[in-house]
């Protein structure tokens, strides 16, 4: 299990938090997504044998936001 922190751009309110956190139910391999609206970040716990960092970023992008891994920033 891997834990990664992403900066998330484009969040306006609680709606966005719920929207992004909903991804954890849609992509296999994601254990949990914890979004912090105030810091505009999310912490994702996932099984890297089932899902990649790129797939997570793509899912967030599809939801209408931009996720950048903090280690890449």
């Amino acid at each position: 299990m891997t834990t990664q922190t992403f900066d998330v751009a484009g969040m306006n309110c609680t709606a966005c938090v719920m929207h992004i956190e909903g991804i954890e139910d849609e992509i296999q391999g994601i254990e949990s997504i914890d979004v912090n609206f105030k810091k505009q970040r999310m912490v994702v716990e996932y099984d890297e044998s089932k899902v990649t960092e790129e797939e997570i970023s793509r899912a967030v992008k599809l939801a209408g936001y931009t996720a950048t891994n903090r280690k890449d920033a």
Binding site: V17, M18, E21, G22, D34, K38, Q40
Partner: peptide, 21 residues
């Protein structure tokens, strides 16, 4: 300004997760 993000009431994660599921 980012400081105004503190004017946001977020329900507890457990509740949103429960309702969503």
């Amino acid at each position: 300004h980012p400081i105004f993000r503190y004017f946001n009431i977020e329900p507890p994660k457990k509740i949103t997760r429960y309702i969503r599921r």
